[in-house]
Measured scan of single mutants.
Amino acid sequence: AVSDRLIGRKGVVMEAISPQNSGLVKVDGETWRATSGTVLDVGEEVSVKAIEGVKLVVEKLE
């Protein structure tokens, strides 16, 4: 699937994400809805860990 190529890629949070609410991330110039187990603020760099349906699962870049 086209989304599989995104796993491991870096992105930037465009709309804040929390465990309760999905947000938006931009990866390779495309905007995706994303979820995370932690709070991520706009502008934070993330990496794509998995894909669930049409949402990316991301975590903060260390």
Score class of each variant (00 low, 15 high):
residue 36 S to R: 00
residue 60 K to M: 05
residue 49 K to N: 05
residue 60 K to V: 06
residue 17 I to T: 04
residue 24 L to D: 03
residue 6 L to I: 08
residue 58 V to C: 05
residue 32 W to I: 05
residue 59 E to V: 15
residue 53 G to S: 05
residue 42 V to M: 07
residue 26 K to Y: 15
residue 46 V to C: 06
residue 9 R to E: 07
residue 47 S to W: 14
residue 53 G to I: 04
residue 13 V to F: 00
residue 6 L to T: 03
residue 49 K to E: 05
residue 20 Q to L: 14
residue 7 I to E: 03
residue 20 Q to V: 08
residue 48 V to P: 01
residue 15 E to A: 10
residue 51 I to Q: 05
residue 49 K to L: 12
residue 60 K to C: 04
residue 50 A to Q: 13
residue 5 R to Y: 15
residue 30 E to R: 04
residue 7 I to S: 03
residue 15 E to L: 08
residue 6 L to M: 08
residue 45 E to C: 06
residue 4 D to Q: 06
residue 27 V to I: 11
residue 6 L to P: 04
residue 38 T to H: 07
residue 35 T to K: 06
residue 48 V to L: 02
residue 12 V to E: 06
residue 44 E to F: 11
residue 23 G to F: 03
residue 30 E to P: 03
residue 62 E to N: 14
residue 53 G to F: 04
residue 4 D to C: 05
residue 59 E to A: 10
residue 46 V to T: 02
residue 2 V to K: 05
residue 1 A to T: 14
residue 3 S to W: 03
residue 24 L to N: 05
residue 22 S to M: 09
residue 60 K to N: 04
residue 11 G to R: 00
residue 23 G to I: 02
residue 29 G to I: 07
residue 16 A to K: 15
residue 51 I to C: 04
residue 29 G to F: 12
residue 41 D to N: 11
residue 54 V to Q: 12
residue 34 A to I: 01
residue 29 G to L: 09
residue 8 G to A: 03
residue 6 L to R: 04
residue 36 S to W: 02
residue 12 V to K: 07
residue 22 S to G: 09
residue 5 R to P: 14
residue 41 D to L: 14
residue 26 K to W: 11
residue 17 I to R: 01
residue 10 K to M: 12
residue 34 A to T: 03
residue 52 E to D: 15
residue 14 M to I: 12
residue 31 T to N: 12
residue 9 R to C: 05
residue 59 E to H: 08
residue 62 E to L: 11
residue 51 I to M: 09
residue 45 E to A: 13
residue 58 V to K: 00
residue 19 P to C: 08
residue 1 A to E: 15
residue 47 S to K: 14
residue 52 E to I: 09
residue 23 G to M: 03
residue 26 K to I: 09
residue 37 G to V: 13
residue 22 S to A: 13
residue 31 T to H: 13
residue 54 V to E: 15
residue 57 V to N: 04
residue 23 G to T: 01
residue 46 V to R: 00
residue 26 K to E: 13
residue 32 W to M: 05
residue 53 G to T: 04
residue 18 S to F: 11
residue 14 M to F: 08
residue 22 S to E: 14
residue 58 V to Y: 00
residue 27 V to R: 00
residue 17 I to M: 08
residue 17 I to N: 02
residue 56 L to T: 02
residue 46 V to G: 02
residue 31 T to I: 15
residue 16 A to C: 07
residue 1 A to N: 08
residue 4 D to W: 02
residue 51 I to L: 08
residue 10 K to G: 09
residue 49 K to S: 12
residue 40 L to N: 03
residue 37 G to P: 14
residue 13 V to A: 03
residue 62 E to I: 15
residue 38 T to R: 09
residue 51 I to Y: 06
residue 3 S to C: 06
residue 42 V to G: 04
residue 7 I to A: 03
residue 55 K to T: 15
residue 34 A to V: 02
residue 54 V to L: 15
residue 53 G to C: 04
residue 45 E to W: 10
residue 61 L to I: 11
residue 12 V to W: 11
residue 47 S to I: 14
residue 7 I to W: 03
residue 28 D to R: 04
residue 17 I to H: 02
residue 7 I to N: 03
residue 30 E to M: 05
residue 15 E to C: 07
residue 3 S to Y: 03
residue 37 G to Q: 14
residue 49 K to M: 09
residue 47 S to N: 13
residue 47 S to Y: 14
residue 50 A to H: 07
residue 9 R to W: 11
residue 6 L to K: 03
residue 50 A to D: 07
residue 24 L to G: 05
residue 36 S to E: 01
residue 53 G to L: 04
residue 32 W to R: 05
residue 35 T to E: 11
residue 44 E to Q: 13
residue 62 E to Q: 13
residue 11 G to D: 01
residue 1 A to F: 04
residue 8 G to Y: 03
residue 58 V to Q: 00
residue 36 S to M: 01
residue 55 K to N: 14
residue 40 L to P: 00
residue 60 K to Q: 06
residue 43 G to Y: 09
residue 33 R to I: 12
residue 31 T to A: 09
residue 40 L to I: 12
residue 51 I to N: 04
residue 20 Q to W: 07
residue 35 T to W: 08
residue 26 K to C: 10
residue 4 D to G: 06
residue 23 G to W: 03
residue 15 E to P: 00
residue 12 V to N: 08
residue 19 P to N: 07
residue 15 E to K: 05
residue 55 K to E: 15
residue 16 A to Y: 09
residue 29 G to Q: 12
residue 27 V to H: 01
residue 34 A to D: 01
residue 5 R to L: 15
residue 41 D to Y: 12
residue 3 S to P: 09
residue 4 D to M: 04
residue 12 V to Q: 10
residue 18 S to T: 15
residue 41 D to V: 10
residue 19 P to S: 09
residue 20 Q to K: 09
residue 8 G to F: 03
residue 34 A to C: 04
residue 36 S to L: 01
residue 58 V to W: 00
residue 5 R to C: 11
residue 33 R to M: 12
residue 40 L to K: 02
residue 12 V to D: 05
residue 9 R to Y: 10
residue 44 E to A: 13
residue 32 W to F: 10
residue 57 V to T: 05
residue 1 A to P: 13
residue 10 K to D: 08
residue 43 G to H: 09
residue 24 L to W: 11
residue 54 V to W: 07
residue 46 V to L: 02
residue 56 L to S: 01
residue 26 K to M: 14
residue 7 I to L: 11
residue 24 L to H: 10
residue 47 S to E: 12
residue 51 I to G: 03
residue 23 G to A: 02
residue 46 V to S: 02
residue 11 G to A: 09
residue 24 L to K: 10
residue 13 V to Q: 00
residue 2 V to T: 14
residue 57 V to M: 07
residue 24 L to A: 10
residue 35 T to H: 06
residue 53 G to Q: 04
residue 8 G to P: 02
residue 41 D to G: 14
residue 48 V to Y: 00
residue 42 V to S: 06
residue 51 I to E: 02
residue 15 E to M: 09
residue 11 G to W: 00
residue 48 V to G: 01
residue 1 A to S: 13
residue 51 I to T: 07
residue 6 L to E: 02
residue 59 E to Y: 09
residue 38 T to W: 11
residue 7 I to H: 03
residue 15 E to Q: 13
residue 49 K to W: 05
residue 55 K to Y: 15
residue 58 V to D: 01
residue 6 L to N: 03
residue 19 P to K: 07
residue 11 G to H: 00
residue 10 K to P: 13
residue 52 E to K: 07
residue 46 V to M: 03
residue 10 K to S: 09
residue 13 V to S: 02
residue 6 L to W: 05
residue 55 K to C: 07
residue 30 E to T: 04
residue 23 G to N: 01
residue 1 A to K: 05
residue 21 N to Q: 12
residue 27 V to K: 01
residue 31 T to E: 15
residue 4 D to P: 08
residue 40 L to G: 01
residue 22 S to N: 12
residue 5 R to K: 14
residue 39 V to S: 12
residue 52 E to Q: 11
residue 10 K to H: 14
residue 23 G to L: 03
residue 28 D to H: 06
residue 10 K to N: 09
residue 46 V to P: 01
residue 59 E to R: 05
residue 62 E to M: 08
residue 24 L to I: 14
residue 44 E to R: 06
residue 38 T to V: 13
residue 54 V to S: 12
residue 42 V to H: 04
residue 22 S to R: 04
residue 28 D to K: 04
residue 20 Q to D: 14
residue 7 I to V: 11
residue 13 V to H: 00
residue 58 V to A: 02
residue 33 R to K: 12
residue 52 E to M: 08
residue 57 V to C: 04
residue 46 V to K: 00
residue 33 R to P: 15
residue 51 I to H: 06
residue 46 V to E: 00
residue 35 T to G: 08
residue 45 E to D: 10
residue 47 S to A: 11
residue 14 M to R: 08
residue 19 P to H: 06
residue 20 Q to S: 13
residue 55 K to A: 15
residue 21 N to E: 11
residue 61 L to F: 11
residue 54 V to F: 09
residue 29 G to N: 10
residue 20 Q to Y: 13
residue 14 M to Y: 08
residue 26 K to S: 12
residue 44 E to Y: 08
residue 7 I to P: 03
residue 38 T to P: 02
residue 33 R to H: 15
residue 41 D to I: 10
residue 12 V to Y: 09
residue 40 L to S: 03
residue 49 K to C: 06
residue 4 D to V: 08
residue 44 E to I: 14
residue 56 L to I: 10
residue 18 S to I: 12
residue 56 L to H: 01
residue 3 S to L: 08
residue 59 E to T: 10
residue 61 L to M: 11
residue 32 W to Y: 14
residue 16 A to N: 14
residue 36 S to Q: 01
residue 57 V to A: 04
residue 1 A to H: 07
residue 35 T to M: 09
residue 60 K to A: 06
residue 57 V to I: 11
residue 20 Q to R: 12
residue 56 L to K: 01
residue 47 S to P: 01
residue 13 V to P: 00
residue 2 V to C: 10
residue 5 R to F: 15
residue 28 D to W: 05
residue 29 G to V: 07
residue 46 V to F: 03
residue 27 V to D: 00
residue 11 G to L: 02
residue 51 I to P: 01
residue 47 S to V: 14
residue 6 L to H: 04
residue 5 R to W: 15
residue 42 V to I: 13
residue 3 S to R: 05
residue 15 E to N: 07
residue 23 G to S: 01
residue 52 E to P: 02
residue 18 S to C: 08
residue 52 E to F: 07
residue 44 E to N: 10
residue 39 V to M: 15
residue 39 V to N: 10
residue 62 E to F: 13
residue 29 G to R: 05
residue 5 R to A: 15
residue 22 S to I: 12
residue 13 V to I: 06
residue 62 E to C: 07
residue 61 L to K: 07
residue 62 E to A: 15
residue 59 E to C: 06
residue 24 L to Y: 11
residue 2 V to I: 15
residue 13 V to K: 00
residue 53 G to D: 14
residue 24 L to C: 08
residue 25 V to F: 01
residue 44 E to D: 13
residue 50 A to M: 08
residue 38 T to Q: 13
residue 27 V to F: 03
residue 34 A to M: 01
residue 30 E to I: 05
residue 40 L to W: 03
residue 55 K to G: 14
residue 43 G to T: 08
residue 36 S to T: 03
residue 50 A to R: 08
residue 9 R to V: 05
residue 12 V to A: 07
residue 21 N to K: 12
residue 61 L to W: 10
residue 35 T to D: 12
residue 46 V to I: 15
residue 5 R to M: 11
residue 50 A to V: 03
residue 29 G to T: 08
